[in-house]
Design a protein around this nucleic acid. Structure first.
Length: 951
RNA sequence: GGGCGGUUAGCUCAGUUGGUAGAGCAAUGCCCUUACAAGGCAUGGGUCACAAGUUCGAGUCUUGUACCGCCCACCA
């Protein structure tokens, strides 16, 4: 084996082998266990979030697979409607072409082309992460099977009255020209203004204080063109007499009523609110209550129309309202219109004042432009009836969130859920299976032929299919069962659905998790007709942030590519990568500077295993994680440690008899029995942590066992046996057997977290360890056996460690070269100490670098020594005039100082009658024993201090 | 406005049913000792954000405060 662990040399071929041999496919007759990958955007590329998500999922699926479950990790990609369409449109725009220039069919061909071209990137990257997904079952949300499922779901929901079409106010994205759902709107604080406008009263009416106008406040003055009322609070005394009277709407010169509605907050502003039902969600509600017309003054670009489109509340056209708009503003963009309308009002003396005002501005999460509430015809899912069972499933624990606190988030959203707008005015996506006749009547069916037969429509009657496509999340919502063949009752569906575990970020709980639960429970039933849930457990993880805690984003230039951590990247390439394709090219200089500062040497190649282990170790309770390159380096070193431990083990075991399974001709040392005992404890802990989704603790337990117990202690303790010319063949065989078998178990224990290095080494050592099988992936996961825990060995080695630590401490503090073997004396030990000393000489000598061990009787004279205590036994390191008096006194004083502190604290406790009375007897007893022990020790230290001082 | 989470060693984080605070990294000292310098051995470092309460005993339970972060919400 190479002297140093080289991830590249070992990661390349294993994945290919695993995939080719079909190890990722469900196998065996074990308990079915299924996970669904959150389908990444087909044209996307891997980011740290994927890396984290995949590390967690692959660890869980490999664990279950090794436990003997029949596992399926379903893989696939998402067509990501808006995102993908935007990318292709941007490419076309660079050539000066719009999608409308191409037409629907040609444009879609372009998108498919782009998908074919870039679609392999993310899947190749997922392979590099080592994810053991079943590629033979890879699906795409737009492939035939899934498209069928989408149609089927739509039709069934429609037939069940859970999908409807209606003219309503929606979140309209004026850049993308599509409706979007509430969730796709981000509300952030921005600075703006509050315009206070004077609205003249009609018919000579006046306010209580004699004014002939009302003052209304607005952050969006341009919408005044669509006002259809002014509202006041019904109990507001100031305006009682005006309710039912009219306003002469400025610029438009339309009469609008003054209505009373308790939506109005009397305390805010003047207590008068302009009502624009066609351009504000609240006003829409007020408008419904007062049967106000909806006056739509904007077109799909959010520019002012030449004449308003006036609708009744049900969306039907209303001709009783004057639809003329002031010609001056026709065609103006909403912000330009705002300026000009304000100017016009100003000129007319109708601006009372303009205040600075902070407000929430709704922006599209994709386009970034301000969303316009706009009146259009859209398709909706009626969510309330779907939410009810979906809430119940989490309440009664059929579905569990890990960590549990996310259930609150889920509940609060689900209990106040709004209908889901699922139609998008895009081309890339699942076309809505609805057809219209010439009169606009809508028919829903799986295809045109079905629609014709279902609704008895003659072949001669022309039907046109709805132009719109479905929200991407509608198809993602079917993911757990559409991928398994639904609506067919496939064997796979029966076997693996409901799935077991979903691993996902908290940011898509609403977008995806909640909708999957709702759609699945309505569409998929058990044989007895009860609803199926999509999954039993939802493991929710946080965002991966940079080392400063900042969200990673291209524009901040702090993005890390998981593959760059795996393969390494030099500084220049990294800088280039981070500074090209920026939205704001001026940020480049700053990003470059910051990158050069953080990665002066670029990034080393740490390998997949180190990266995965890092993700696992950071995967604590659902919080965001700050990604720290230092951790990766530490775990790369951990890989190296395993690598070198293997070299040591092979050095002594290769081509040697390491004891076959059936062999009995070997003898286990106390160290062998100790490490085997410790291994059982580690196995127990790791399994518990994996079962409770605490991958951080599992990673820590593995690290701790491998490095601190196996390498630091056991490998050292094996040397006195292996190297001892006097040791018997049985003893050597026992130690060889233990070395190799514990190592082999470590590999299986760690394999789910670090698949490559464990497979590589396992293949090398399996024959020696008595293991068989083609791959570690199919080896059994270690299970702790209580019977192998040897309490005597545990306490014996603990005792050994205490002595070795004591001597090393003296060596360190007294500045004695580690190369110098020391003669050591023992005194005041018990019979057990003496017996232990007798049988463990070889360990002590080797690990503490001792020249000799001498047992002193109480009466024996002792040479001047540095001393330390193990229990009551004194360990003396003779200093033969070399002793640094002050240093030794200082060392001993420090020791006794610690003890004194401890004694005074414990005694204080024991002198408290309440403690002695009320605390459990065993706790009190423990404290008493502690005091007694400390007192003995302190006494000895004092004697020693006196002795040294007297020199 | 409502809800959730966080505050523990210089940094990043653990801390299981309340019983004298742990890890990794960083720091310091000594070592290229025949698995590993991507290493070994040793050492230092914390009034667990603050306050009150419950308790014999609180990092851990209760209440409140401060600061940080996130989610949701209709104040024009």
């Amino acid at each position: 084996m190479e002297k140093t662990y080289e991830p590249h040399a070992i990661e390349r071929q294993w994945y290919q082998t695993w995939e080719e041999k079909g190890y990722f496919k469900p196998a065996g007759s074990g308990t079915p266990y299924c996970m669904m990958i959150p389908p990444p955007n087909v044209t996307g590329s891997l980011h740290m979030g994927h890396g984290f998500n995949n590390a967690v999922m692959d660890t869980m699926i490999r664990y279950r697979r090794m436990k003997g479950d029949s596992t399926l990790w379903q893989v696939g990609t998402d067509h990501a409607g808006i995102a993908t369409q935007m990318v292709v449109e941007r490419q076309l725009a660079a050539q000066g072409v719009s999608r409308h220039d191409l037409g629907r069919e040609q444009f879609l061909a372009k998108v498919w082309e782009w998908k074919e071209q870039s679609g392999g990137t993310i899947t190749r990257q997922i392979r590099r992460l080592g994810s053991s997904v079943d590629w033979s079952r890879e699906r795409f949300t737009m492939d035939d099977g899934l498209s069928t499922a989408v149609q089927e779901a739509f039709v069934r929901l429609f037939d069940d009255g859970l999908i409807y079409r209606g003219k309503r106010l929606v979140n309209w994205d004026p850049k993308l020209h599509t409706a979007i759902s509430d969730l796709e709107v981000e509300n952030h604080d921005e600075k703006g203004f509050m315009w206070n406008l004077r609205y003249p009263l009609a018919d000579g009416a006046t306010t209580a204080d004699g004014k002939n106008y009302l003052v209304v406040a607005t952050t969006r003055p341009e919408t005044m063109l669509g006002d259809s009322a002014v509202a006041v609070h019904p109990e507001d005394e100031r305006y009682q007499s005006l309710i039912g009277k009219f306003i002469q709407l400025p610029l438009v010169n339309r009469l609008i009523p003054i209505v009373a509605d308790d939506y109005v907050d009397r305390e805010f502003g003047t207590g008068c609110v302009k009502i624009t039902p066609a351009h504000d969600f609240n006003d829409y509600e007020v408008g419904k209550r007062h049967n106000l017309p909806l006056i739509n003054v904007l077109d799909k670009n959010a520019a002012i129309l030449a004449s308003a489109q006036v609708f009744n509340i049900d969306g039907s056209l209303n001709s009783s309202v004057n639809s003329a708009l002031p010609a001056d503003f026709a065609g103006l963009d909403r912000y330009e219109a705002r300026k000009q309308i304000v100017a016009a009002l100003e000129a007319a003396g109708l601006i009372e004042k303009i205040d600075d005002h902070a407000l929430k501005v709704p922006r599209g999460d994709r386009s970034g432009v301000v969303i316009e509430p706009w009146l259009t015809d859209q398709w909706y899912v009626s969510t309330k009836p779907l939410a009810e069972p979906a809430i119940a499933a989490v309440e009664d624990g059929r579905i569990q969130f890990v960590p549990k606190q996310y259930e609150n988030m889920y509940f609060s959203w689900m209990r106040d859920i709004q209908d889901w707008c699922i139609s998008r005015q895009l081309w890339w996506g699942h076309r809505i299976p609805a057809w219209y006749d010439a009169s606009g009547k809508v028919y829903v069916g799986r295809n045109e032929a079905e629609v014709r037969s279902k609704y008895a429509i003659a072949a001669s009657t022309p039907l046109t299919q709805d132009e719109d496509v479905l929200d991407t999340w509608f198809s993602s919502g079917l993911w757990t069962f559409s991928t398994l063949g639904w609506p067919e009752q496939t064997e796979l569906l029966k076997k693996f659905h409901p799935t077991d575990l979903l691993v996902t970020g908290f940011d898509i709980i609403f977008f995806w998790v909640a909708r999957m639960i709702m759609l699945t429970m309505h569409l998929v039933k058990h044989e007895d007709g009860t609803a199926q849930i999509p999954f039993k457990t939802v493991y929710v993880h946080g965002l991966v942030r940079d080392s400063q805690g900042q969200k990673m984003s291209k524009s901040k230039g702090n993005v890390l590519d998981p593959l760059d951590i795996i393969d390494g990247i030099d500084l220049e390439t990294l800088v280039q990568k981070r500074t090209t394709g920026l939205m704001q090219p001026k940020d480049a200089a700053k990003i470059e500077k910051q990158t050069r500062k953080e990665f002066p040497e670029g990034i080393q190649a740490y390998g997949t295993d180190a990266l995965r282990f890092t993700f696992c170790s950071l995967a604590s309770t659902g919080r965001d994680i700050k990604f720290d390159m230092g951790r990766v380096e530490g775990y790369r070193n951990f890989c190296n440690k395993i690598w070198n431990a293997t070299r040591y083990v092979l050095m002594h075991c290769d081509e040697q008899d390491c004891g076959q399974d059936s062999a009995t001709d070997y003898e286990l040392s106390v160290a062998d029995r100790w490490i085997i005992s410790k291994l059982q404890l580690a196995e127990k802990n790791v399994a518990e942590y994996l079962d409770s989704y605490r991958l951080d603790l599992a990673a820590q337990a593995i690290y701790e066992f491998v490095w601190n117990e196996y390498c630091d202690w056991y490998l050292e303790l094996s040397k006195p046996v292996i190297w001892n010319t006097e040791a018997t063949a049985a003893q050597k065989k026992g130690t060889r057997r233990t070395l190799i078998r514990v190592l082999e178990t470590i590999l299986r224990l760690a394999h789910p977290l670090m698949p490559f290095i464990t497979e590589e080494i396992w293949q090398k050592i399996k024959p020696l360890a008595g293991a068989s099988g083609e791959t570690i992936m199919q080896a059994r996961y270690p299970e702790a056996q209580e019977s192998k825990i040897d309490q005597q060995a545990l306490s014996d080695v603990e005792w050994l460690q205490a002595i070795i630590l004591g001597v090393r401490n003296i060596r360190g503090e007294m500045n004695i070269s580690p190369a110098k073997d020391l003669p050591v004396l023992f005194k005041n030990g018990s019979a057990e100490d003496q017996q232990r000393l007798q049988s463990n000489q070889q360990f002590l000598k080797k690990l503490a670098s001792l020249e000799s061990i001498t047992w002193l009787n109480a009466s024996d004279a002792e040479p001047m020594s540095a001393t330390t205590l193990v229990g009551n036994m004194e360990i003396l390191v003779p200093m033969a005039g070399l002793i640094d008096k002050d240093a030794e006194i200082a060392r001993l004083s420090k020791e006794s100082g610690k003890l004194e502190m401890d004694i005074s604290r414990t005694e204080a406790k024991l002198s408290n009658a309440a403690f002695v009375d009320k605390a459990p007897a065993e706790v009190v007893e423990k404290e008493r024993a502690r005091v007694a022990e400390s007192k003995m020790a302190i006494e000895k230290l004092r004697e020693q201090i006196l002795k040294i001082s007297a020199l």
